[in-house]
Computed example of a mutant assay.
Amino acid sequence: MVNVTLDEAGGSVAVVKLQTEMWELNIRAPVDDLVRLRAIRDADWDARRSLPIGTCAGAQVFWATSEGRPVILVGRDDETWDIAVTIPVAAVDEIARLAGGHG
């Protein structure tokens, strides 16, 4: 289970907090870009498609699916990342839903 919160305190830029008991990941991105996560199922890593949305720890964030599961890749690009986290598709759907309800 991944808890999802969206804080839009910075206006058009939001902070997405993904959190479990063991880890936390904070991603900053324009709200309009987060809505694009509705297309996560089309961002097939095997076809080398990803969605470049947001930053984390000063690095770019890329979103893709691998074997039907969403993967967040943090790093210079979507092929040589420094951090990769697999999360449930429901968590990505929740981010897109929360972002779509703002603005």
Results as ranks from 00 to 15, higher is better:
residue 2 V to K: 09
residue 2 V to P: 01
residue 6 L to W: 02
residue 7 D to F: 03
residue 7 D to A: 08
residue 7 D to I: 00
residue 7 D to V: 03
residue 8 E to M: 09
residue 9 A to W: 06
residue 10 G to E: 11
residue 11 G to V: 06
residue 12 S to G: 09
residue 15 V to F: 07
residue 19 Q to C: 00
residue 20 T to F: 05
residue 20 T to N: 04
residue 21 E to T: 08
residue 22 M to K: 15
residue 23 W to A: 10
residue 25 L to Y: 03
residue 25 L to D: 06
residue 26 N to Q: 14
residue 31 V to Q: 04
residue 32 D to S: 12
residue 34 L to T: 04
residue 36 R to Q: 15
residue 38 R to C: 05
residue 40 I to M: 13
residue 43 A to S: 09
residue 45 W to S: 13
residue 45 W to G: 03
residue 46 D to R: 15
residue 46 D to H: 11
residue 50 S to V: 06
residue 54 G to M: 04
residue 54 G to N: 07
residue 55 T to F: 02
residue 57 A to L: 10
residue 60 Q to R: 15
residue 61 V to R: 00
residue 64 A to E: 08
residue 65 T to P: 02
residue 66 S to Y: 12
residue 69 R to I: 11
residue 72 I to D: 01
residue 74 V to Y: 05
residue 75 G to S: 09
residue 75 G to P: 02
residue 81 W to Q: 08
residue 82 D to L: 11
residue 82 D to W: 10
residue 84 A to C: 09
residue 84 A to M: 13
residue 87 I to H: 08
residue 87 I to E: 06
residue 88 P to R: 15
residue 89 V to K: 13
residue 89 V to P: 10
residue 90 A to R: 15
residue 91 A to S: 13
residue 91 A to Q: 02
residue 91 A to D: 05
residue 92 V to K: 05
residue 93 D to Q: 11
residue 93 D to W: 05
residue 98 L to P: 02
residue 99 A to C: 06
residue 101 G to T: 05
